[in-house]
Design a protein around this nucleic acid. Structure first.
Lengths: 156, 156
DNA sequence: AACATTTTGACCTTCGTTGACCATTATTAT
DNA sequence: ATAATAATGGTCAACGAAGGTCAAAATGTT
């Protein structure tokens, strides 16, 4: 967090507010003007410092009265567990394998039974409807990985 | 719900009334005057915020004593509601369209916010990771349809 | 020098606002 | 009755106001 370049300064500024506020709504051009940079720099800062992987959720709206809203997500305490599960996922996942993972997650209170059934339906053979078995299983793996990563963070 | 622009304010005003009344009949020019905007802006608000996809039914009459009536649809029968949503799904669904459906489902207590976010992640561009845009949107439509059908047998 | 990060700006997409013009219904005058 | 007129709401296209994208240029790091 070396406050040398503008991006770092803007990042620090936003994080300072988020330390107290937990959600912030900004006007892109205003911030850009305030820090004497072009508007698209704000997008750069958000993309590199406030992405989902870093624990932030960003929404925006264009047009008159537009805004960019940054929300701080809270790191869930089950990340080690998620990491371990991710290591177990191969590049292809069958329906049976998915079932086992989902039961695992449900058994450990990481998802509800309803959520487990929901994902099972979304990722089943009929729903995906892909001719190539290999492609289907690869996609199912993607879905499972996405699910696990989404569980890393939770809104408060 | 950032109440910056007039459209948002008018939307909030109408929804506040609809929260208690379930049906509201307005005079276009009166509302326009009340919020200091041109009459056609009311049409814009209705078209973008009170359309059928968002669960509203709108009727109007021109001429002397004309009106615009906005009715909030309530769904006593879940299956009927799901059928109606299914009819609105085209064979291809974009991320934005999915977002609208999920908000709709969440707004009507059909799914939790967490489930909505979960599905959004599972069905996003990056997760599906399909080269053909058309195939991606078709698959997203399948996922949405599967979700809706799964809700038939799963109540919160 | 080679590579990575940051900064800029041209161009794009989406959303909101406005006003001119159109369509329908009710009321009034003939 | 019929025709004119007033009173509504509807449509649409243009414009302005945001934010988004992307690649080139500049700067920093190793």
């Amino acid at each position: 967090m070396a406050g040398q370049n503008i991006s770092d300064i803007i990042e620090a500024y936003l994080k300072q507010i988020l330390a107290e506020q937990q959600q912030i709504e900004i006007n892109r051009s205003d911030i850009a003007a305030q820090f004497n940079c072009v508007p698209s720099q704000i997008n750069y800062v958000i993309k590199t410092r406030f992405n989902q992987q870093k624990g932030y959720w960003v929404e925006s709206k264009r047009g008159g009265g537009g805004y960019i809203r940054i929300e701080k997500l809270h790191f869930s305490d089950v990340n080690h567990y998620i990491d371990r599960l991710l290591e177990l996922i191969s590049s292809r996942v069958t329906e049976d394998e998915l079932q086992i993972f989902l039961q695992q997650l449900y058994g450990n209170d990481m998802i509800t039974k309803r959520e487990a059934q929901m994902v099972a339906v979304l990722a089943d053979h009929q729903t995906l409807n892909i001719d190539s078995r290999s492609a289907e299983e690869t996609l199912r793996a993607n879905l499972l990985i996405a699910l696990l990563n989404s569980l890393r963070y939770q809104r408060m």
